[in-house]
Design a protein around this nucleic acid. Sequence first.
RNA 1: GUGGGCGUAGCUCAGUUGGUUAGAGCGCCAGGUUGUGGUCCUGGAGGUCGGGGGUUCGAGACCCCUCGUUCACCCCA
Length: 425
Amino acid sequence: MPSFQTSPGTRDILPPDAARWREFNAIFADTVEAAGYGCIIPPMFEDAAVFHRIGEATDVVSKEMYDFQDKGGRHVSLRPEQTASVCRAYAQHRPTTPWKVWYTGPNFRYEKAQAGRYRQFDQVGIEALGVYDSALDVEVIALAWKFYQRLGLLNVQLFINSLGDDGDRERYVEALRNYFLSHADALTPEACQTLNKNPLRVLDSKRQGDAEIIAGAPKITEFLSDSARQHFEEVLEGLRVLGIPFTQNEHLVRGLDYYRRTTFEFVSTALESAQNAVGGGGRYDGLVKDLGGPDTPGIGFALGLDRTLLACDAEGVFGAPSSSVDVFVVDVVDGTYALSVTSELQDAGYSADRAFDARSMKAQMKSADRSGARFAIIIAQDEVARGSYTIRDMTSAQQQLVAKGDLVEFLTRNLGARTPRRHPS
RNA sequence: GUGGGCGUAGCUCAGUUGGUUAGAGCGCCAGGUUGUGGUCCUGGAGGUCGGGGGUUCGAGACCCCUCGUUCACCCCA
């Protein structure tokens, strides 16, 4: 056993998996930037009070916060999500609206790890602030849907619900509380505890014993104001226009207290583990105001990177990219030729690797094979004397001599032209 | 936080009712007429059996504690 290993709920993402993560983020960025969302990078920790706005009664705040006092006595917390940070950023910088941003990065929750759940977990997401229009709800949901499609996921189901406005939500919660209290003897003890903290979340119970009572509970739809109801209808109609299939679920309440009106969740039906929600989001029209900013509507979603990749595995799509270099330089002279040839080829835009420690030609060829390189460039005394290097095509095993000054031209002919990525001047 | 399963080589795992120097496959390294990979053959390196305590003449096997991991609950992505 090694002396040190990763802390519980954290892990190393090694190659080639990390390359897969990068690809995941790149596809996400392409998808949402095409709709006008700009990248935002909020800090990984901030004043714990920012996150308390998520809701004191939520598990995320009451028992999962990674909070501590810093050396200056400030009470800070590692972010458990990024929505609150984005709203804090909006209140702090007051950008013009609509303000549409996207993010990626790790979040932290002190939970016990299990399949698809970690203490440090990555999410990608978008937030759009300053717009009440239901068309924005549709755009946000559609972008998540589009992204899943681009990954190749087929077995993702969209559940959607409306929690109404502030007043609707309060009246509904009250009605639920009364209903559940009158049936408290038939509920599981766990559900009764939840009832004390937040009656809404009793609806979320997966326990068999609660199913019957929940089925008879009042429906949110009966409490929606006319404007909230109309807004919701418009969202559903927009989804139909785009041909995005959805299932209305009146029990979808989600665990964060700031949600208003539209809430939605993406569930992978390919996942057999308990954590099968791969993404979720909704409107949070009061959150910016709660954080001391102007009364500003907002909507967004977050997708769990780890879970979405688990879903990809379950469906056999979006595998880790195969990593390979263009050429592998085998130098059995003294290693200095490999040094300059790899450098020269890299400057020309080709990826080139080599072996170290003056290993035998056989050993170097083995490394060349493992590197996945299409060509091995072999340099021994003979080649040095001739000023031409042996190039071996690793797939056909054909070899030929190429003058050392013609290497780039040879690769251009066989692999296509390349130029290294540079910052445009 | 609660409950169940599991910790033996880098990886996947064997290891008989407790009994000598703990094994295999894969991977890695080195050889197989010294200029050549992917197949094959031979050899080699690599383990304080998660850690600590206990029972015993003797523990990788049994007991306790602990740490880690995994699955589930709770909750969430």
